[in-house]
Every structure is written in C-alpha cells, then in structure tokens.
Amino acid sequence: MTRLYDIATARAGDKGNTSNIAVFVRDPAHWAAVCDQLTADALRTAYPALFRGPVTRYVIDHLHCMNFVLEQSLEGGVSDSLNLDGHGKSFSFLVLDLIITLPDAGDLEGDAP
C-alpha cells in the first residue's frame, strides 16, 4: 500500500465548472499499477460529494502521466462557488492522498531493493 503522494506529482486547473487534475508518475516502474488502479471511476467514487459529474481520463503512456477532466466538480466554478479555493487548485493534493497497491517488491516503504 503506497500513497500516491509518495510516487507521483499532480497539478490541478479549472475551466468554468470543470476541473482538470493531471497526475504524473515519477518512476516508470510504478506506471502500470497507477494506470490500472487510478481510473476515472476510482477518482469519482473517492470523493462523490465533490466530484459530481462525468469523469474522463486521458492517458499519455510514454510520458507516464494522465489527465482527469471532472465536469460539474467545482461547485459552480470560481465565479459561483462559495469554496475558498473556487478554482479547485488544491484538488491535486486530494488525488495524491489516494492509495495505490504496488506489486510486492515495489512497495516504497517496504523491502530493500
């Protein structure tokens, strides 16, 4: 069990009421596991009260990164939301809080290489 924070970085932005959260896996060895587990469904079900609309995932395989487009996820968007962070800029760290199961020896905090 590894927190995404320990193996990936993320950056979030907004367009109207749509949030986009890009996730970048730092070590290619972890890419397959993240790709399998960090699906659009996984993200939507992790924070259902916040991510209320369709979630689409775009993958750029050779760069080991993925982009989530989350519709209706900004409480109306920066001009409507009452959230202090109306842009959802801090959503990157919501995603990085999720857990990924890496295949046995790949667990970062686990066995020595």
Binding site: G13, F24, Y58, I60, L63, N67, V69
Partner: peptide, 14 residues
C-alpha cells in the same frame, strides 16, 4: 518535471 506539469495544465483532451 516542471515542463510536464505545465503540459497538462488546464487541458482537456491532450
């Protein structure tokens, strides 16, 4: 990494 993070910033379908 700094270039990569900006590559997808406020992008929909890359």
């Amino acid at each position: 990494e700094t270039v990569l993070e900006q590559l997808l910033y406020e992008v929909g379908d890359p």
